[in-house]
């Protein structure tokens, strides 16, 4: 007993250090998983409020680029609308998707574990597992919400995995991020017999209840065929510029519960 006490006194500093390090690693491994607790994260009220105040100060410096991107987005949407104008669509089937616009409060792009915080939360009808898109394409998925803020897991986070397809031939693949470059992601699971070209457009598959079908994701930058598995390994240039993102849209899917119930059936087919 006396020896033990002596030992503790002698190495108290190191023991305290080891205990705190263990605590840190418990935090890292329990909290950085996909569904994180909400007590320390950026949708936390105090830190999000500070970031938001600061953002409102420096927002003026970004106004020009925000305006430019909104104007471009309007142009694209108007052109899309024009395509549909000449058709008289009888009874439009309700798609069930609704968009909520939100402003980015804080975001990171040059880490491995990148996250984005937006200024809308539970009070505005946002829930975890909702998709998020930007003016040019897909951004990520909501992972946690507080009353006024939400945290988004962007495509540029190693935990992100999104079901996508090639626009021209509807072959499905899986989009992940390998940490090397911001604004580039990795597309796998496209079989080797499919014809793939540089510049091919990648869009969301609509398989998950999170994103509607056909949201732009990016274009193919380069590809190699893995000889042993006979699948392509494809690098995709993302359309979303994560460095200059100011506003995003959260996708609310009112048919989501029905769609989720359908999944087991379709898997049996």
């Amino acid at each position: 007993m006396k020896n033990l006490l002596n030992f503790i006194i002698k190495y108290a500093f190191t023991l305290v250090f080891i205990l705190i390090e263990i605590l840190c690693f418990v935090l890292i491994f329990t909290q950085n998983s996909y569904h994180r607790f909400s007590f320390v994260n950026s949708s936390n009220r105090i830190t999000a409020t500070i970031s938001q105040q600061w953002n409102s100060v420096i927002e003026y410096t970004k106004l020009k680029s925000i305006n430019d991107s909104l104007a471009l987005e309007n142009e694209r949407l108007m052109n899309n609308l024009e395509k549909y104008r000449k058709y008289e669509i009888p009874a439009i089937e309700k798609s069930g998707f609704k968009y909520i616009s939100a402003k980015i409060v804080s975001s990171s792009v040059n880490k491995y574990q990148n996250y984005i915080t937006i200024d809308k939360g539970k009070n505005h009808g946002i829930e975890p597992e909702m998709g998020v898109i930007g003016p040019n394409g897909i951004v990520g998925i909501v992972v946690s919400t507080s009353n006024k803020y939400s945290t988004i897991l962007p495509v540029i986070n190693p935990n992100s995995k999104i079901s996508v397809k090639l626009e021209k031939n509807n072959y499905f693949g899986s989009l992940s991020w390998e940490s090397q470059k911001v604004n580039q992601a990795f597309l796998s699971e496209i079989p080797g017999y499919v014809s793939v070209q540089k510049g091919d457009i990648v869009v969301t598959s609509g398989f998950s209840a999170i994103f509607p079908d056909g949201i732009p994701v990016g274009s193919i930058n380069s590809y190699v065929k893995n000889k042993s598995t006979d699948f392509y390994e494809i690098i995709v240039d993302l359309f979303t510029d994560f460095n200059n993102l100011s506003y995003v849209y959260v996708i609310v899917n009112s048919n989501r519960n029905e769609q989720l119930e359908m999944i087991p059936e379709s898997e049996n087919e």
Binding site: C24, N41, S42, S106, Y115
Partner: peptide, 29 residues
């Protein structure tokens, strides 16, 4: 011991802003 405690608080403060619980704290400690 005070330095150790302050390191932990410093790291954790950065973590709370960044949504990276424990990562900065472990390095500062």
């Amino acid at each position: 011991f005070v330095v150790l405690g302050l390191s932990f608080i410093l790291g954790l403060s950065i973590d709370i802003f960044n949504s990276t619980p424990g990562i900065h704290a472990s390095a500062t400690v």
